[in-house]
Design a protein around this nucleic acid. Structure first.
Lengths: 229, 229
DNA sequence: AGCTGTGAATGACTTCACAGCA
DNA sequence: TGCTGTGAAGTCATTCACAGCT
């Protein structure tokens, strides 16, 4: 918890936005822009200008007053801060629809992540090729993680198998897990988990959608719209 | 955002957790449990007991003191609150790896969502079958949305095509979009967007992984990603 | 002038702690 | 007794507003 850790403490909310800034800056760079103001970057990232400035100030990346931020420099700073100066190796557990789609997704490599293995327990899937990799057996996990110094495990199995998949990853020494299974994983404290539950995302949309003037048989009728950025 | 209605104003952070409670309760129900305490539900959902109680209190779902919450009743309350009393129709734009995986993903239907169409612009994909549906042309979008009263559009196209896909959905009358493209969509104020950028999730993991001395456990769903701009 | 960086103010969310009911 | 529901306190995050550099 409060164990004396890193000096620079960046709020979680800010951390979640840094990758978005990074993405926007790459676009700007591709367009040949060499400076950008907090307001312009905010527009691109879909946030407020004050947020951009405060977020960037957290790790002391200084812009130039009267001008803005130097795009290439800021990209470097963000890359360093996000640990993207080297590629992170990932392994995907589960070669079903989602796991295969993730393995084949080209967007990872160019953003600093390399999928070095895909494993499954289903013999019908083992040996197939997805995204240029052969699907291995789950027992190969240990070797794959060790051989490639894998840092991140992706859980893309059905919920009933998710905990076991996580246990295996943890046993192999993986300390960061991206979990697509609709289950809360039980892992040791030093392992960080991020959950992406697609149905949850849809349900959140549905919640807001339901509070418009929707023909759902709810007790309360139309109530003031939300929204406004 | 989320200025909120007059009466029941549920904080965004709480809304993001309701689907998780709902999911856990379904598990409990399947196990035959008929009551659950805030502490037990918290354990399952990976949050604190106080959070559970406060979240549930927001929409006046009353438990029984000394006992806990009645599982079936609470499921009904959550279903009503989340607007899951009827199925939501969704359409997926983009029949690439991800779009196909989403279309074939069985987990949606059982959680209240039905994919009624998948469209693409690539002639090579049109006509193929994914998840029991034939991939249609993007020009069919209008008809699909109208015919099935689609409420939610899923953008699963490359970033360069995402804005156009969103524009089309909006033009068809869709007011809720789940965006998997790594781009900030520009949509009218009344349209709500939730972004899921897989590379961003990995980058957030990498950030924490990069600060080795200070492990962090993160289990919170992504909030603040929803836009209304 | 233009725009960043930042304390101070505001607002949102979480946790505490306990009264009150079953 | 056990557990919920909830004000109050505390923590975290966002916005404001302006000093200060270019």
């Amino acid at each position: 918890m409060a164990a004396g850790g890193a000096r620079r403490t960046v709020p979680d909310a800010a951390v979640a936005r840094l990758p978005v800034y990074h993405r926007c800056l790459l676009e700007l760079e591709a367009q040949g822009r060499d400076t950008v103001s907090s307001e312009q970057l905010a527009e691109l990232a879909g946030v407020t200008a004050a947020k951009v400035r405060k977020d960037l100030s957290h790790f002391g990346s200084y812009g130039t007053r009267g001008v803005g931020y130097a795009v290439p420099q800021l990209i470097l700073d963000l890359r360093r801060e996000l640990g993207l100066t080297h590629n992170w190796r990932c392994v995907i557990v589960g070669a079903g629809n989602l796991g295969s789609a993730l393995a084949a997704f080209g967007g990872f490599r160019e953003r600093g992540f390399e999928v070095v293995g895909v494993v499954d327990v289903d013999p019908g899937r083992i040996g197939r090729e997805v995204g240029g990799l052969l699907v291995g057996h789950e027992d190969d996990l240990d070797r794959i993680v060790a051989d490639h110094d894998v840092a991140i495990g992706v859980v893309a199995v059905p919920p009933s198998a998710a905990q076991e998949a996580a246990d295996r990853l943890v046993a192999c020494g993986v300390r960061s897990i991206l979990n697509f299974a609709p289950t809360v994983l039980d892992v040791p404290e030093e392992v960080q988990v991020r959950n992406v539950d697609l149905a949850v995302e849809l349900q959140i949309l549905a919640f807001h959608e339901g509070r418009r003037s929707d023909p759902v048989e709810t007790a309360a009728p139309v109530i003031g719209e939300s929204a406004s950025a």
